[in-house]
Amino acid sequence: MADVYVLADLERGRPTDLTFELLTAGRALASDLHVPLKAVLLTNEAGLIAPSLGFADGVVAMSHSSLEHRNLEAWSRALLKILDEKPPKVLLIGISNGLLGLPSLVAGARGLPLISLCRSVTAHGEEIVGDPVLFGGKIEAEVHAKGGPVVVAVRPGSYSAEPARVQRTVPVENVEPPEALETRRVHFKRYADLEQTDVDITHCDVLISIGRGIQSQENIRIAEELSGLFRNAAVSSSRPLVDQGWLPRTRQVGRSGMTVKPRLYLALGISGAPEHIEGMKSSETIVAVNTDPKAPVFEYAHYGVVADILTFMPRLAEQLRKRKPVVA
């Protein structure tokens, strides 16, 4: 067998968006290699989840109580048994917080080639090629791996999840759990929700960030409405608004506030003082709207609009309402 495997990332028993992103990646790779694409499902009750992975040609599943929650020790022992019994050509694992380290544990234990931090993965003949992004995006690499199975760790947000959201009955191959699961030393105890009185802007996918251009406290409502049109979004701001008491300190982006890296940072009426830039410059996509075409924020933005945000925000909201909110 020389399939392309994609490990399903699960949170509280549901496949995460990252799972579907990787299935999309895996499909392209499987086509190049002319092999089937299979989802690997580690959980306590595989039968319930398998149909949601219908984009794959099949599911390789292992069910055991220790696999219910992501547990690096249990999951690596389970994966190793699957790799030993049914070795694939490539195993793709998404770098979610819950799975970070798993590719290394598996590759390290069996001496397998591993390419980590990848945005994409392709096949060049027999070689698997990954393109890790290093040093906070300052350097890109091209890494080749021979032999196999090759383990590839893929960053979130690199592929589209949408095409892979296919619900259907798929063939499931069950693999017996290894005895090593009984002697594991790490035990999942509980989930703990953070005691939070406010949203954590460092974990938002989209930030609608407002500055002095918002002009008055009641206008913040317009930004809140805009934020409501995205998924996992919140309103954040530059320091002057927080100092004026218009927003709580928890929403402040910048050197003396939070450092954020959302997928979309919409800087509205923010001129871009260096202290602010420091807290948001690593955002994936930065869109800046400001009346001043010379505002420094435009040097760091990917897209810029010269406009009064009070005119622009309602127009943007109007356009957004025509679409449904999607965020990985």
Binding site: P113, I115, V133, E140, V143, K146, F298, Y303, V306
Partner: peptide, 20 residues
């Protein structure tokens, strides 16, 4: 087990694409 074939700087234009 893997070979780093090349490193390069990402191609990125400085400054924003202005929408008009």
């Amino acid at each position: 087990k893997v070979e780093v074939v090349a490193l390069h700087k990402p191609v990125a234009g400085k400054g924003a694409t202005m929408l008009e």
